[in-house]
Amino acid sequence: MTLPDHGRYAYSPITRRADYSWPEGKRLAVYLGVNLEHFAFGEGRGAALAPATNEPDVLNYAWRDYGNRVGVWRMLALLDQLDLPATVLANSAMYDYAPDLMQAFLARGDEIAGHGVTNSEAQGEMTEPEERAMIAAATDRIAAAGMAPQGWLSPWISESRVTPDLLQEAGYAYTLNWCMDDQPVWMTTRAGRILSIPYPQELNDIPAIVARKDSAADFAGMIIDTFDEMLDQSNDQPLVMGIALHPYIVGQPYRLRHLRRALSHIAAARDRVWITRAGEISALCHGGLAGQIS
């Protein structure tokens, strides 16, 4: 029996791949994916603190907006304190809504990756012309602020049948949409290839805290345990560990306290791991490691 297949990559067990190392001979690459999202008021999608009873959904809209007004600024202070870089996954609407916030990340030298125009819409529900236009609009807005995005995470990780094709054709080097591996993987498109960099759905505060109702302490423990285990596993294969963070969730004070503990644990081991940005992983894979990536 032959099942329908996406045709984007072939099966490859992680135990049978070419060996390589990250810079300075390090074996584990770690990056932080900080999601900056803006939502339409009274319509569209959005993570929910509590079920909406009507629109406008003031409770959930304001809860999410706390992240942009307060939570993310606390996170910025934490990143500065620990000297940690970030890959910012930004809705392009953020440039109009909170331009000083976007400038704060640019001033740190952080990477800005594409994350659609707004998380009030799902990319996979668009027609191909609509999706192409949305990608172009988000890309142009980010580039106009001074940094052309090299990577993309779809809002809600929602893809159409042609999303990887459209991203590659728009000039994107990598996608974060596919969570099938702990190493970068080349994906096929109709006009070439695009790199898939691991983006977590376990070490992600939305499925962990909002969906599964894990506590702040549980989430911090997951980060620490994953880091320690992957550091051991990386003796056998080079690995990538991503941590997906949303300021309206982990920027809440009691959760930030636990996040501080987890990130401090990682920062204390910086001499053993490559703490980096997703774009730097991509650049290395497209460059000197291009022939080593499966």
Rank of each mutant, 00 (worst) to 15 (best):
V162T: 12
L289R: 00
D271R: 07
T127Q: 12
Y97F: 12
E159S: 05
D96K: 13
E131V: 01
Y174V: 04
A47S: 03
P99C: 14
P253H: 08
M134L: 14
A262H: 07
F39D: 02
M180K: 12
Y248M: 07
M187N: 14
H115G: 07
R212N: 15
Q150S: 14
M230C: 11
Q150M: 13
A208I: 04
L76Y: 04
R261Q: 13
N91P: 15
S215W: 14
D5A: 13
L166C: 04
P23Q: 15
F41M: 07
L82H: 03
A208Y: 01
P23I: 15
F41K: 02
R132E: 10
M126K: 09
D140V: 13
A10T: 10
K213I: 06
T163M: 01
L231G: 04
H38M: 05
R8E: 10
D83C: 09
V117E: 09
E128D: 14
G151Q: 06
H258Q: 10
I194V: 14
P247Y: 07
D218F: 14
L3W: 12
M1W: 09
A133R: 11
D5C: 04
R212E: 08
M180C: 11
L239I: 01
A211W: 15
V250P: 02
A173K: 12
G124C: 04
N60L: 12
A143H: 01
A244C: 10
I243G: 01
T189Q: 06
A98S: 07
A145K: 08
E37K: 09
I206Q: 03
I224T: 07
G25I: 06
L76K: 05
G33M: 15
T226N: 12
V185Q: 06
G146I: 03
L28S: 03
S12T: 06
I266E: 02
G67N: 08
H265I: 10
W73V: 15
D271T: 14
V70L: 10
P198F: 03
A90L: 09
I223V: 15
H246Q: 09
L259S: 08
I266P: 00
T87R: 00
Q81P: 02
A262Q: 09
I281V: 09
R272E: 13
S154C: 06
